[in-house]
Design a protein around this nucleic acid. Structure first.
Length: 153
DNA sequence: GCCAACGTTGGC
DNA sequence: GCCAACGTTGGC
């Protein structure tokens, strides 16, 4: 059974529009520097898994589009680039610490603001909404996904 | 810019 | 292994 994920991106860096404009509508999900989020990509994601494309750290945080996992995991090149903000001097190229997957944008949705997600009773259990959650990648249940797809339509 | 909450680091 | 200090996330 395929899984469903919510993945946060700062639109100033990669927005849903940027992803849709990319070659093959696909972007490498670089910059994840949290072990739990990394492990989701490494251990649990499969190509074809559904993705909610979330805009964070911006004037209107919320769900901005639908996407899918488009690759198996592979090393995140930014960890080896000293000029990148995601450079990690402690990562050994022979055993890369950070990986990523490619994400293919499928379509933009109406922006469903975080505040609206919080108000919806059926979404009260969402990992995204858990107190103090900072994970940039969180699992989404099928029930949550169908509610959100209706909201986003 | 503030700050709550959480993750990571490193001395012991 | 503990835990204080520090760094980061991310909404507001």
């Amino acid at each position: 059974m395929s899984k469903i994920w919510l993945m946060k991106s700062e639109p100033a860096e990669v927005s849903i529009d940027d992803a849709l404009a990319a070659s093959g509508q696909t972007v490498p999900w670089f910059g994840v520097r949290n072990y739990q989020a990394r492990n989701f990509m490494r251990d649990e994601m499969r190509p074809g898994d559904a993705v909610l494309f979330y805009h964070s750290s911006c004037p209107e945080p919320g769900i901005a589009g639908l996407a899918e996992v488009a690759s198996t995991p592979y090393p995140d090149p930014t960890q080896f680039d000293p000029r990148s903000p995601y450079f990690d001097a402690k990562s050994d190229p022979k055993a890369p610490r950070w990986i990523l997957v490619d994400v293919r944008a499928l379509r933009k949705t109406r922006l469903v603001p975080l505040s609206e997600l919080r108000e919806h009773p059926a979404l009260a259990g969402m990992r995204l909404l858990a107190r103090g959650n900072r994970l940039s990648i969180t699992p989404v249940t099928r029930a949550e996904f169908s509610v959100i797809k209706k909201l986003a339509r």
